[in-house]
Design a binder for these strands. Structure first.
Length: 530
DNA sequence: GGACGGTGAAACTTCAGGTTGCCTC
DNA sequence: GAAGTTTCACCGTCC
């Protein structure tokens, strides 16, 4: 229902967005406000919150929950909590999962009236509101023409589609804010009256094509060039692309690349083949052992190749956590990397100099275009390095300007890529590297220094409790056994003390039979860490 | 006259997000 | 390209 009667909104403040938000609340309704950056989402929420006179009835509780969702609240968390007191919130990828969940749940309960968000909330999350207010229809983009570009109509529809809650409202309102009369015309024409864009096949994206091609070969879904062409000719990509000849050239290029990386072998006529099977074997394409593993791991072959090169090189240097963290950081999968700001450029170059000898990849020249990505990967590695040095989220936010949610996402991705590296190293028979990776993954998972590893084997002991125990001189399972329960209780509380005592085989009460290992915990025993 | 605070213009900086993998003593 | 932040000059007030 694109058109309705004009709505009358009280122009109490100079900020239209604030007026609209207040108007929505006056009606007893809720709204989602879409903006184009994390910073803007936070500022908008704050702008609205400061104009609200009264706190929301359960605002304090929501704020407390938000702060409790993280070990050490950052400025961002405090900002969100301050807004939540007034029933306003912001939502973007910089929030932790728990905080996002709280904001979403409290919005559904009606305790949060307005959420200012980036497009995170447009897709995926089912969170309808009476109104969606779209402040920014332009977004910065480095690709294409650069600068600010109008977002696709499809995206606008995603956002506008959040307006109106099926069970509660008969209709919903999607409101765009225009900066000028010209802008108003443009928005009306492009978005309200416009048609959504055509959908394009994702196969056209190189990393996706590389990955799928290898996986088709690895699973023996295709066995020859002919099979490959048959398969792709039936895809949506080919349907859109039309020019099968050009498409074949692209696929040939990819096959060539995969063969050079030693992920596939194509059998030519001169191979050692039984004469009776010659015809069948001719043109046969197979995945190598390495190629099959890469496909199973679902990492981009280009990334896999980079990891393999680095692992090979690692044999000749003294491998450090930085070596491995930088190695996984400089991959497509870790993008967007944590960016080095203009003002930080010298600082990170200096800091990197101290680690330069640990590098397992070739260092690009400062004048090469790849250097940007490289130095960003160094910064990303530093963030992770500080994380395993037990720095908390607040420190990382202050030092690197990375928000808690972003830190978490980087840790998860790095772990996944390290797992992939571990598997590749196994196939390459690089036992030494594996030892390093396993240890690093463990430290990354819990964010701890090496010395805490023995204590983390215990259920109920994370980075904070392990540190408390360690500082009190209780440094391994033997120390736990010897330690007095009263001492332990003072450090980490009674129930956990009894529990860990039982985990080391001392049943002081009828303790629950402990699991030997936490779910998903990585074993270090094989690697001399007993 | 100097310290201090408030204000506004100018300069500078930065800019969304998502999924994938496992099984190990 | 534009929002948000920082820096800086300028002005008024107070001691």
């Amino acid at each position: 229902m694109p058109s309705r009667e004009p709505i009358d909104v009280e122009q109490k403040f100079s900020n239209d967005l604030v007026n609209l938000a207040l108007d929505t609340m006056k009606m007893g309704k809720q709204a989602l406000v879409f903006v184009s950056s994390k910073k803007s989402a936070e500022k908008c929420a704050e702008d609205i919150a400061v104009k609200m006179k009264d706190p929301s009835p359960v605002g304090d509780v929501v704020a407390t929950d938000i702060l409790a969702a993280i070990q050490k609240p950052t400025k961002q968390c405090e900002r969100l909590a301050r807004c939540a007191v007034k029933g306003i919130a912001f939502h973007h990828s910089g929030l932790t999962h728990k905080q996002r969940e709280i904001v979403e749940d409290e919005f559904r309960r009606g305790n949060v009236k307005i959420i200012c968000c980036t497009p995170t909330l447009a897709a995926g999350v089912d969170l309808p509101a009476f109104r969606t207010i779209i402040r920014d229809l332009k977004r910065y983009s480095e690709t294409g023409w650069g600068g600010m570009q109008y977002i696709p109509v499809l995206e606008y529809l995603q956002m506008a589609g959040r307006a109106g809650r099926p069970k509660f409202d008969k209709f919903g309102e999607a409101i765009c804010i225009a900066a000028s009369e010209d802008d108003k015309e443009k928005i009306h024409e492009k978005y309200v009256l416009g048609e959504p864009e055509e959908i394009y096949s994702k196969l056209a994206v190189e990393p996706v094509l590389r990955t799928y091609l290898l996986s088709l070969i690895a699973t023996e879904f295709v066995r020859s060039k002919k099979d490959i062409m048959d398969f792709f000719s039936r895809t949506f990509w080919a349907y859109q692309f039309k020019d099968m000849h050009k498409l074949e050239t692209i696929i040939d290029k990819m096959l060539d690349l995969l063969e050079r990386y030693e992920f596939i072998i194509s059998k030519k006529r001169d191979g050692f083949v039984d004469a009776s099977k010659l015809e069948e074997e001719e043109g046969r394409i197979r995945a190598t052992l390495l190629g099959r593993r890469v496909a199973q791991l679902y990492i981009d072959p280009l990334t896999a190749h980079h990891l393999i090169k680095c692992i090979r090189r690692s044999a000749s240097i003294a491998l450090s956590p930085f070596s491995l963290l930088q190695m996984v950081s400089n991959t497509l999968e870790m993008r967007p990397l944590i960016k080095v700001k203009t003002s930080e450029f010298d600082k990170f170059n200096e800091q990197f100099a101290k680690f330069a000898s640990d590098l397992v990849q070739k260092e690009p020249s400062i004048y090469e275009p790849e250097y940007d990505d490289f130095i960003n990967s160094v910064k990303t590695a530093f963030v992770l390095l500080d994380w395993i040095d037990e720095k908390d989220e607040e420190f990382l936010y202050e030092e690197y300007n990375v928000r808690p949610g972003e830190t978490r996402a980087k840790i998860d991705h790095a772990d996944w890529l390290l797992y992939g590296s571990e598997e590749l190293a196994k196939l390459m028979g690089m036992q030494d590297v594996i030892k390093h990776i396993v240890k690093l993954r463990f430290r990354l998972k819990y964010g701890v220094k090496e010395e805490l590893i023995p204590l983390l084997r215990l259920k109920g002991i994370g980075r904070v409790r392990a540190r408390k125990l360690y500082n009190a001189g209780i440094r391994d399972l033997g120390d736990i056994k010897k330690a007095d329960v009263t001492t332990l209780t003072q450090l980490i509380g009674k129930s956990i003390s009894l529990d860990i005592k039982s985990q080391v085989g001392e049943d002081l009460e009828k303790a629950i039979v402990p699991e030997n290992k936490r779910k998903g915990q990585i074993s270090l025993r094989d690697y001399g860490e007993e």
